[in-house]
Nucleic acid binder design. Structure first.
Length: 221
DNA sequence: GACCAGGCACATC
DNA sequence: GATGTGCATGGT
């Protein structure tokens, strides 16, 4: 995929949708919790769960760390997979207190590559969650890849069919300037496009990329 | 009722 | 190394 194609897509999306003001969370910790809760889950469900955490007054590292995992699961029930995700939040907090004295600033002080390694070594935090935390909670220049990214690029023939997460991430990071604001906006715009036009069943009418080339069997992506 | 949602770990071949 | 499965709620 060429630099020009990446630039064209960004320009089209920004012209159509404008700035997205991501991440939709007020503090680094809220962003981290949201990143874990939104795994394979609609954001509106995550909002309900985060609302429950706020209402219960436990949306801080100390309070969540002290909370019983069963009680945590009940609070985040609307986000789905609540038992799994309660464990994942606990795993993150255990690591934060074991190695960083419970202080997000100390975790965020790591350089980007070390931060990714640290996050990826926590059970329940995979590539997209780690990179979302790095970019949106700690302002590290890491490009976030998600299901929409692969689907959109695949349908336009801009990716090898077997491209993995790291390949796609490096494609963007090696093509774009190393700019946190740009990475922030680009990923958010791809999600916006995905929600409106690039679901498994495509809704191409009015899509800002409608006139761009598509692969032969693009609906299979 | 079917489909979808901003994944991940684990089992199996 | 690729592919399949469980995890679960809530909106369209």
């Amino acid at each position: 995929m060429s630099r020009q194609q990446i630039q064209t897509i960004y320009d089209r999306l920004f012209e159509r949708f404008g700035p997205q003001h991501w991440w939709p969370g007020e503090t680094p910790f809220e962003i981290i919790v949201g990143a874990i809760l939104t795994q394979n889950t609609n954001w509106t469900n995550v909002e309900k769960a985060i609302g429950n955490l706020k209402k219960a007054g436990v949306l801080t590292p100390d309070k969540l760390h002290a909370l019983d995992v069963g009680a945590l699961a009940e609070l985040i029930r609307p986000a789905g997979y609540f038992n799994i995700k309660a464990g994942r939040l606990k795993h993150f907090l255990d690591r934060l207190f074991e190695r960083f004295e419970g202080q997000l600033d100390r975790l965020g002080a790591l350089p980007a590559d070390r931060l990714r390694e640290e996050l990826l070594s926590i059970k329940g935090i995979g590539p997209e969650t780690a990179d979302s935390i790095a970019l949106y909670a700690f302002d590290k220049p890491v490009f976030v890849v998600d299901a929409y990214t692969g689907r959109i690029l695949g349908r336009h023939g801009l990716l090898e069919p077997q491209a993995g997460y790291e390949e796609v991430r490096m494609l963007f990071e090696s093509t774009l300037p190393r700019d946190v604001r740009l990475y922030n906006e680009y990923h958010a715009l791809l999600v916006r496009l995905g929600k409106e036009h690039c679901k498994p069943k495509p809704q191409c009418a009015g899509c800002p990329l409608e006139d761009l080339p598509h692969t032969i069997n693009w609906q299979e992506y």
